[in-house]
Nucleic acid binder design. Structure first.
Lengths: 208, 208
DNA sequence: ATTTAGTTTAACCAAACGGTTAAAATTAAA
DNA sequence: TTTAATTTTAACCGTTTGGTTAAACTAAAT
């Protein structure tokens, strides 16, 4: 809830408890699959208290969605501002990406579904997340010119990287059941192995 | 609606109209985002008529979901039973896959979201779709033994193929907006180009 | 001790929802 | 033309849903 900074606040961390409960339920069930009562139960508070802190379901959802975006888009500026060569940059991006999603494995399907339902939400995302595909595009094109890598289309390569990192999370139940006989541990081990597997797969695909 | 085969049927194709309307709405909005009234409007019939043909929302949804599965999983038996070599098989699978999803581009996010909500639905899927990953796994492992391709993990390769084919559809609004300035035509052209791009990407990644 | 502001609750509300019912309309057969 | 079966409709119903209200409670400031 928006407050003046000097305003007294003698509640326990109810607002935080609500947001945590909302994250859990919304990310699992989506906007339309979520009941305000369930969030209240999860936070162990009265339902009216939800509306006291976040006036509407939509406002509470927006808070969760904005959080989800930060766990969906990796920040790769730091990687670019290092003395890594292109292959090392790729390796770092992929490892960071899979690590990020591993910490919140239900985020991809949640974000993709909600964007699909209301593509207009993208406007906020682009502002708040400050995504810059240009940097990566130009880097790839420069490497192609230099002859370090095959003449691949930059956009295709970017989409390939994201696909290989994100899709296995969005398709978790399918993959776990069909390829790992519903063995949860086998699936998570597989995901972790992909940090190196995906990296070498991509590098083999583009190196001369 | 289930009927005895000899039973007279003097309606126009109301049942078909309902199913088509249900496909459109359910696949766009998901089970929980769909209102029975909206399906009735789409089919230009009375809402009670929905319940006359498909007794409950869930039964109607199941009909749509089962259809969606057939448009999500490609049938690759024919490709295997040809005299193609491994790379030609890969090429055929990828082209068939992207072509299949192109015809129903909203199916992936719909299916993935609904499976995520209710993983138990997978039981029906596996039965009705008769998926056989073993065939592909054994084929890949045999090629590795023969030395035709690098020693890649079969499961990783399979997940990579599916990821590269399916993810760009699930992430359409993101990709179209971020990489193609919301140009619909540029996006669809890009998708079509991937039939060959993904094929050569994968072949480069695994060939010796 | 009283006032003031912020917090929490129980009870309530109107709208929307999936689903039902009984009657009317249509169709094909007798 | 009557009959029987199927199809379609309008009106209705109980429940669930997001949201409100007014009162009770708590804690700090005067």
């Amino acid at each position: 809830m928006i407050k003046f900074e000097l305003m007294t606040n003698y509640s326990s961390d109810t607002e935080g408890k609500i947001l945590e409960a909302a994250k859990k339920v919304f990310i699992e069930k989506g906007l339309e699959g979520t009941r305000m009562q369930e969030i209240a139960n999860e936070a162990k508070i009265n339902k009216a208290l939800l509306h006291y802190y976040y006036r509407t379901k939509e406002k509470l959802f927006n808070a969760v969605f904005q959080f989800a975006i930060t766990r969906f888009i990796p920040h790769i500026e730091g990687i670019f501002n290092s003395d890594k060569n292109f292959f090392e940059i790729l390796e770092a991006i992929i490892e960071q990406y899979i690590t990020l999603i591993s910490k919140n494995p239900f985020i991809p399907i949640f974000v993709l579904h909600e964007i699909n339902r209301h593509p207009d939400r993208l406007a906020d995302i682009i502002k708040s997340a400050g995504i810059q595909p240009k940097i990566l595009i130009e880097k790839i094109e420069k490497e192609v010119e230099k002859g370090t890598i095959r003449p691949v289309s930059a956009l295709n390569l970017i989409v390939n990287i994201i696909s290989l990192c994100v899709f296995p999370f969005a398709a978790r139940p399918l993959i776990q059941r069909l390829l790992f006989d519903n063995d949860k541990h086998a699936y998570t081990t597989f995901i972790q192995s992909r940090k190196t597997e995906v990296t070498s797969f991509i590098i083999n695909a583009i190196k001369i």
